[in-house]
Design a protein around this nucleic acid. Structure first.
Lengths: 139, 139
DNA sequence: GCTTGACCTAGAGTCGAGTCTAGATCCTAG
DNA sequence: CTAGGATCTAGACTCGACTCTAGGTCAAGC
């Protein structure tokens, strides 16, 4: 019944997040952790579940292409505490637009690639027939 | 009426493709050009419209995240000429799947970001009212 | 004849995002 | 007491994809 404040070692956090132990320390140096990470006996890092949640957010942001400096900036705002919600929102919206744009670009690329795939498929489907007269996928 | 074989300098190709002159030479070194690029008087590169088209394809592939080694591989297949269409198709399909997956991942991220944006919007919309009772966007 | 601008090569430098190493510390189990 | 395993710090290394520099060639215009 006693859910003792669940504190995690860096190794456990690595396991839970999929980040490497190295990456976790690196992120901390980069100022990307919500609070400056508590230390246990022997100077070891002690993470809370909240830290893990924060890291999961960071992972989402990274996976969607936000560069570390931007994440650091967002982290800074959150660290400052209440009062700058507008700035946080603006930052998130900016990123939202970038991701949307990126999805758009990828979708365009995908269409072109799909077109090329179809050309090759057709060429191969019926290629045996007119092998010499060129159904011409030149590249 | 005489559409003289349109040959372009590296500078012109850079302008048409949006790649830098440096990048064009770099791509050539990396073996990413369909044919090994003809040279004009004084050893200058002479590009054809086909080269530009090929580059445009490469740009699409790069933009959709295909690494240079993979592009080099595809280039190699095209250089070899007819006969390996199945391999080319396989390579393109593989990439197609990767891009699709990437779009999927980005879309998931976008949803989460959208959710966070909404939380902040709500918080700000009605925040003045319950400023102290915490509509709690913690980060 | 001389400068300017586009081009050439080889190779060094940059940037982002980690990853890895060395050498030290600490806790636990045998 | 000691060996093993996880952790610590500072700092070096890697990788991909360019980008830039130095030093040289060449043709055109003034």
């Amino acid at each position: 019944m006693s859910e003792t404040a669940p504190s995690l070692s860096i190794g456990q956090v690595a396991e839970r997040t999929g980040l490497s132990v190295h990456a976790l320390r690196f992120y901390e140096r980069e100022g990307i952790l919500a609070d400056p990470v508590r230390r246990g006996p022997g100077g070891r890092r002690v993470y809370s579940e909240q830290d893990v949640e924060w890291l999961n957010l960071c992972i989402i942001l990274r996976a969607s292409g936000m560069p570390l400096p931007a994440i650091r900036q967002y982290t800074g705002l959150v660290r400052q505490g209440a009062g700058n919600e507008l700035e946080r929102l603006a930052l998130l919206r900016r990123h939202q637009e970038l991701v949307t744009a990126q999805i758009g670009r990828l979708t365009e690329c995908l269409e072109l690639i799909g077109y090329k795939v179809r050309v090759y498929e057709d060429h191969l489907d019926q290629g045996a027939a007119d092998d010499l007269c060129g159904s011409l996928p030149e590249n």
